[in-house]
Amino acid sequence: MIEVKNLRKNYHSEKSDKYAGIGTKEDKENGISFSVPKGEVFGVIGPDGAGKTTLFRILATLLLADSGEARMSKWDVVEDYKEIRKIIGYMPGKFSLYFDLSVEENLKFFATVFDTTIEENYEFIKDIYQQIEPFKTRRAGALSGGMKQKLALSCALIHQPEILILDEPTTGVDPVSRKEFWDMLKKLKEGGMTILVSTAYMDEATRCDRIALMRDGEFIAIDTPAQVIADYEQTLWSVKGDNLSSMLEDIRAYPQVETSFAFGDEHHITVDPNLKKEELSDYLTEKGYTNISINEITPTVEDCFLALTKEGEKGKEED
C-alpha cells in the first residue's frame, strides 16, 4: 500500500540556519526505506526536528525528495501526484481548518474540494462527526483542542481516502482525548484503512501495529512495538524510594550504573549485568535513603528510544 525506497531529502532550514533533512547521514547511504501493507497502523515516533513532517510531506506530494522513490497505493509520488491527492487524507500538524468558518462550513468546504458532499459520506464519518455535530454552527476557532482535532479528522476523511496521513494529531491534547483519538483510528483501521501517523508521545507506540523510531532524519528502529521491546539488550531496573531527586545523583555516582533517568515516581537505570540488586540497595541505604525497592522491569518504548539514542551517540558529541 505504501512503498518507500531510499528516500533522501536535504535542505537548508531558514528557521534554524542549518542543513537538515531525512536519510542524509553519511554513514547511512541508503536513505529511508519501509513499506506499509493495507490496513496497518504505522507509527513514526520521534521528537520535534526528527524529520517526521518532512517525510510525511513527501508522501503527501507536497515536497519533492532529492532521491529515492515512494509509491502510495500504485501511484508514484512525483509522476502521479494528482492521483495520490485523491486517495489520501492528510491532516497536517497545525490543523488546517478555517477558523472563521463554522464546523459545518469547514466540512462542506473540504467535501467540495474533493468533489463530493457531506451527505454522500455521512455514514463513513458518522462516528467521529456526530461528536461535534451538536456544535455545527460554532466557529472552528472557538472549539476546544479535542473538538478541533475531531473536526480536522472529519475533514481529512470526507472523501473516504484509502490512506490516512496524520502528522502529530495528538500533540498538545490531554490524555483522555488522546486515548479517544486512538480508539477512533482503531475503528478506521478495522474498516481497512491504511494509516500513517506520527507522534512525539512514546506511550502511543503500543497503539500502532508497527513503529519506526526516528531521530535526526533516520529510522533507528522499525518493527512491531513488542519486537522493539524484545530487542532491548540492557539490564533495566526500576528504583523507588524516598527523596528520589537527590537519589538520582547518588545512583549516577555508582560505578556499575550505566544510565539513569527519572520516570515519574521511579528511576529507570541500566546497569552492568553482573551487579546485584542487594549491592545497590546496600549502597543507597548507607547513603541514608529509606523505603528503597529495586526491581528488574520490562522496558517501555521510551526506554528503548533512550537506549537506541545513546547507541547512536557513541563517538559523537551530544547535540
Binding site: G46, P47, D48, A50, G172, F261, A262, L306
Partner: peptide, 10 residues
C-alpha cells in the same frame, strides 16, 4: 516539554 526527546525532557 511538548515535543522534546525523552532524554531532554528528563
Amino acid at each position: 516539554t511538548g515535543g522534546v526527546d525523552p532524554a531532554t525532557r528528563r
